[in-house]
């Protein structure tokens, strides 16, 4: 095996998933549309009092981001499972966990990054102060990859089931809770003008933890699902 073959497989897989996403634009637009709609419905539902919106805004944005991610998770492995390409990944001469990282990275670029880009606009919509919006961006930048990474384990475990959607939510949502608590609280704290380094450190720790463990767990889960 040549030494550059693994990086080649990694970039080719990443490129493949991005190409597929571009050919299925709905996959990019659906979670984003969901995110924007849910967030913008809240002021209509609970009233446009700026103080109230400022208080619940961070929570709303983060819950919406979390649900949008959940909505798009199945896309990581479902279609690959159905057409048999997932088997081919397991039978490749490369470590499956590295291929998993490429797939999760593609998923984040397709679903997480657009949320990140549009979130300052939603922050303004909910009347968050400038400092809080910057912290919101940072928490989303650190947090949305965690959503994809943890989600990948859940999808890998449920991809062989016919109706895995419900079980997937039950498996994954509890694991999202710590991230939700720290991230929404960080934005709240920033809005109150207090330092948030502790929050950000904790979220970074979550990112490092999931980045190092999730690919291995996902690869193992895929083996179980396909056997």
């Amino acid at each position: 095996m040549t030494s550059d073959s693994l990086p080649r497989a990694f970039t080719l897989l990443l490129k493949r998933d991005l190409t597929l996403a571009v050919r299925h634009r709905a996959e990019i637009l659906n979670p984003l549309l969901f995110f924007v709609l849910v967030t913008s419905l809240f002021p209509l539902g609970i009233g446009a009092d700026p103080k109230l919106l400022q208080a619940v805004g961070p929570g709303i944005i983060w819950v919406a981001a979390l649900l949008a991610a959940l909505l798009s998770l199945e896309g990581i492995f479902r279609s690959d499972f159905e057409d048999g390409t997932l088997e081919q990944f397991l039978l490749s001469s490369h470590p499956v966990s590295v291929l998993v990282i490429a797939k999760v990275l593609a998923h984040w670029l397709i679903t997480g990054l657009p949320l990140l880009v549009i979130s300052p606009l939603l922050g303004v919509l909910l009347g968050l102060p400038g400092d809080a919006i910057i912290i919101l961006l940072i928490t989303l930048a650190l947090g949305t990859p965690v959503l994809s990474l943890i989600g990948a384990v859940g999808v890998a475990l449920t991809v062989g089931l016919r109706k895995g959607g419900m079980i997937l939510s039950l498996l994954v949502l509890p694991l999202y809770v710590p991230l939700l608590i720290f991230a929404a609280n960080a934005v709240d704290t920033a809005a109150a003008g207090l330092p948030v380094t502790a929050h950000l450190s904790l979220i970074s720790a979550l990112l490092v933890l999931s980045l190092s463990l999730s690919p291995l767990a996902t690869a193992a889960a895929l083996r179980i699902s396909l056997s």
Binding site: S79, E82, D83, G84, T85, E87, Q88
Partner: peptide, 11 residues
């Protein structure tokens, strides 16, 4: 391995 499923992406 070429299985029962083709292992190719239609898109």
């Amino acid at each position: 391995y070429v299985g029962h499923r083709d292992g190719i992406k239609l898109d």
